[in-house]
């Protein structure tokens, strides 16, 4: 792993226009002023509740939603793309380099195509392979990497369990040989027993093929075990970003701490000791003033209601967006 960023975003914003009629159009900022670097060869985690903008951020890096402000670049050493201003032909070649693995393996696979056709489709559409033999060869290679049998290739998706289907989705995403893969809640729909298997597979693929992963999840314990670096999102902003070990040993943002304490403990005698977060994430069309978290934060004061804190660090890679993090760390 090098420290050279594969993906970097500077003050990136994505907004959608919502409303009942064209006269009542409102702008919804799903991602608001995000600055981050995803190092080449890393397993980069993004966590947050529903509505925090984590999926939209992933889509922005894939150029699947229009970027409203700021910039984002892809640079793998041989080619470089500015994701905020791409021509149609650039986009076509970028699709080969950046791919997405979806959340729900039941909805992501066409029920009318065989597994072989599902994995072969991107190869044929992008014109990567020229002959049928070449395509078959490539499909068999990638299927073997994702631990699918040749026997499986002739069947239809309905014959497979959730874990096997997710392996098929992964094979399809990797068929065109991408450098950058966004895994959006890729284990959320799976049983814990299977989840561990898919996580181990993603990790080994990342190592063997030298891929860079952006792993989007709402499950902190899953992220803790797979990612090198974690960014925590709340209402379209990154509120804390740190190497996994630092984040889990000493979370600085009150939101991150609340997320930790909400994970149900396996110890039955640990009941009732957790710090509960009140209320729900505010609507992104009607955002609070100042620090966006102040409506749910137990430590909020006037400063928090008035001024939005900046993402700051103490010189290390650990960044946090909170007025009071130093005082809170001293208390703890």
């Amino acid at each position: 792993m090098t420290n050279r960023p594969l993906i970097s975003a500077r003050n990136l914003s994505v907004s959608f226009s919502v409303g009942d009629s064209i006269f009542k159009r409102q702008s919804l900022k799903a991602v608001d002023g995000v600055t981050l670097d995803i190092p080449k060869g890393s397993f980069f985690g993004v966590v947050g509740e529903s509505g925090s903008g984590k999926t939209t951020l992933g889509r922005a890096f894939l150029n699947a939603v229009p970027i409203a402000g700021g910039s984002a670049t892809y640079d793998d050493g041989t080619v470089e793309y500015a994701l905020d201003k791409m021509s149609a032909s650039d986009l076509k070649s970028y699709r080969r380099l950046a791919q997405l693995i979806f959340q729900d393996p039941y909805a992501a696979l066409s029920p009318r195509m065989t597994v072989r056709d599902i994995i072969a489709e991107p190869l044929e559409v992008m014109g990567i392979t020229k002959t049928r033999e070449e395509t078959d060869q490539r499909v068999r290679e990638i299927a073997a990497r994702c631990r699918l049998n040749l026997e499986h290739l002739r069947r239809f998706p309905h014959a497979f369990s959730g874990g096997q289907r997710q392996r098929i989705s992964i094979a399809r995403a990797l068929a065109c040989g991408p450098q950058f893969v966004v895994a959006d809640e890729s284990v959320a729909a799976l049983d814990v027993s299977i989840q561990a298997d898919i996580l181990n597979l993603l990790k080994s693929l990342q190592r063997d093929l030298g891929l860079t992963f952006m792993f989007i999840s709402h499950d902190l314990s899953v992220v803790a075990h797979t990612c090198d670096h974690v960014a925590v999102m709340y209402l379209g902003r990154i509120v804390e970003s740190a190497p996994t070990r630092d984040l889990f040993q000493a979370p600085r943002h009150p939101y991150t701490r609340a997320l930790f304490s909400a994970i149900p403990s396996l110890d039955p005698d640990d009941r009732g000791t957790v710090q509960k977060l009140q209320g729900e994430i505010p609507s992104p069309t009607n955002q609070p003033s100042g620090c966006k978290f102040h409506t749910r934060c137990p430590h909020a004061d006037d400063l928090c209601r008035r001024e939005e804190p900046a993402l700051e660090s103490d010189g290390s890679a650990h960044q946090v967006m909170c007025h009071h993090w130093k005082a809170l760390m001293a208390e703890a």
Partner: peptide, 14 residues
């Protein structure tokens, strides 16, 4: 198979 938070190095066993 559950990822545990107290030991990040423990391998996940499916």
């Amino acid at each position: 198979a559950l990822p545990k938070l107290d030991d990040l190095d423990a391998p996940l066993v499916p």
